[in-house]
């Protein structure tokens, strides 16, 4: 039973990676430009379509195509920050949020116009699993049972750990990281201290959109059908992860993003017990309700700090 449980937890590995990257991207934008980026998922889906187009129509392999997709993501991110947020005449916090919602509509409508119908992408070909006839799973015998991973999930985990690890180290030690942390705590003071906050927010948007595309490609590689809204569920989870972990720290959102897929799969695992055999229908509802209860008890999130307003 324990091996089956471990297998269930490992099954959520890909979900964890994708949610972590998305949640970190959302937090990065939230901290530096005080807006929740609702277009995160749609930009990511657009970039993923570009990668799929490169693979299917132009024969460019995924490991090159993903950089092209990320470059498109960077371009879109810079466009939103430099040309929309800075040029608008009446932009406030609510307005920024609504603009990102406008981008969601733009991409929901525009993506099918540019790329046509939703498509399925044979990402397995990248790993040579189908061609060489090898198994796409890795099986470890332990705890009196079999623990199953997919190779794709393991590769994605490695990439996520390297990427997020690098970014966290850069946040801690580099000048850019110092700039981001200062801008996050107070944009006005950061400007007074001589930090070019415009450059910091622009880099944050570019980085966040690139991470989004990376996450979307990973998710599509796991067998999801690509459509303009295929990342929507990941985005909802990423937002909830950010709220669960608290927006006030960068690592909080990542911890939240690890917890949500694990809890979801654990609730699903309960279906193995006869008393809960019907639970898989209510899996998401139960997880979201649990999250709501946590938020009700701790509105600042698990790692959030309470901000005391001074008059």
């Amino acid at each position: 039973m324990f091996a089956a449980f471990l297998s269930t937890v490992c099954g959520s590995l890909l979900g964890i990676c994708v949610t972590c990257l998305s949640a970190f991207a959302v937090t990065l934008i939230f901290r530096t430009s005080t807006t929740a980026n609702f277009a995160q998922a749609s930009i990511a889906a657009f970039g993923c379509y570009v990668v799929a187009d490169c693979l299917n129509n132009r024969g460019i392999p995924v490991y090159i195509g993903v950089f092209i997709g990320m470059a498109i993501g960077v371009a879109i991110g810079l466009f939103i920050d430099l040309l929309v947020f800075r040029k608008g005449r009446y932009i406030n916090e609510l307005g920024k949020q609504i603009i990102t919602m406008g981008f969601v509509s733009l991409f929901f409508g525009g993506t099918p116009l540019v790329f046509g119908n939703p498509e399925f992408i044979p990402f397995e070909s990248f790993y040579n699993t189908t061609k060489a006839g090898t198994d796409s799973n890795i099986v470890i015998n332990a705890f009196g049972g079999e623990i199953v991973f997919t190779k794709h999930a393991l590769i994605c985990t490695a990439i996520t750990v390297v990427v997020l690890g690098t970014i966290f180290i850069l946040l801690k030690v580099s000048k850019w990281g110092l700039g981001v942390r200062t801008t996050a705590s107070s944009e006005f003071t950061a400007e007074l201290m001589g930090i070019d906050t415009h450059v910091i927010t622009a880099i944050s948007w570019a980085l966040a959109c690139a991470l989004g595309v990376l996450a979307a490609v990973m998710y599509a590689g796991g067998g999801a059908m690509i459509s303009a809204s295929f990342m929507a569920i990941i985005q909802v989870n990423a937002f909830l992860a950010c709220i669960l972990g608290g927006f006030s720290t960068f690592y909080g959102s990542v911890v939240g993003a690890i917890l949500i897929p694990v809890i979801t799969n654990c609730v699903g695992f309960l279906a193995n017990f006869p008393a809960f055999h019907n639970i898989s229908r209510w899996q998401l509802v139960i997880v979201y309700l649990l999250l709501m209860i946590v938020i009700l008890i701790k509105p600042q999130g698990l790692f959030g700090k309470k901000v005391v307003k001074k008059v």
């Binding site: 603009i99 406008g102 509509s105």
Partner: peptide, 8 residues
């Protein structure tokens, strides 16, 4: 798409 553009 037009809706999105108009919102922005």
């Amino acid at each position: 798409m037009l809706t999105g553009l108009m919102i922005i």
